[in-house]
Computed example of a mutant assay.
Amino acid sequence: MREQVKSYLVEYFFVGKELTDEVLLVDDLGADSLDLLQIVYTLNDMFGVEIKIDDLSRMLSVGGACNVVSELCQKKVRYYLTNEKGP
């Protein structure tokens, strides 16, 4: 999952190298507010999660974006496992 997020960010920012967790989206990659919103919408679609505006402050680095997506995906899995209906 982390690799998928990183690959998307590499493509989005046209970076010719692998991104480390410490890379900052705004300061290092030049993202603006519209970029951040586009990234959120795309990651929501890619992983079937709902990143909330409150999560944006945690997504200012590549590692932070990976962590937020990972946490939301884990919550989604736990929800489906605990709410699964048997036959």
Rank of each mutant, 00 (worst) to 15 (best):
M1D: 13
R2T: 05
R2H: 11
R2Q: 10
E3C: 14
Q4V: 11
Q4C: 06
S7M: 08
S7I: 05
Y8W: 04
E11S: 12
Y12R: 09
Y12K: 09
Y12L: 10
F14D: 09
F14H: 07
K17I: 06
K17H: 10
E18V: 11
E18C: 01
V23W: 12
V23K: 12
V23T: 07
L24H: 09
L24P: 00
L24I: 02
L24Q: 08
L25N: 01
L25K: 05
D27H: 14
G30Y: 02
A31I: 05
A31C: 03
D32Y: 14
D32R: 08
D32G: 02
L34W: 03
L37H: 02
Q38T: 09
Q38A: 07
I39Y: 11
V40A: 04
Y41D: 00
L43D: 02
N44G: 04
F47W: 09
E50R: 08
E50L: 06
E50H: 07
I51D: 00
I51M: 05
I51T: 02
K52S: 10
D54V: 14
D54T: 11
D54H: 12
D55M: 02
R58N: 14
R58T: 09
M59T: 12
S61C: 09
V62F: 15
A65M: 10
A65R: 02
A65H: 04
C66F: 00
C66I: 07
C66S: 12
C66P: 02
N67A: 15
V68I: 07
V69Y: 08
V69W: 02
V69R: 03
V69D: 04
E71Y: 01
L72T: 10
L72N: 09
C73K: 14
Q74G: 00
K75L: 14
K75V: 08
V77T: 13
Y79M: 10
Y80P: 00
T82W: 03
G86R: 04
G86P: 00
G86Q: 05
P87R: 07
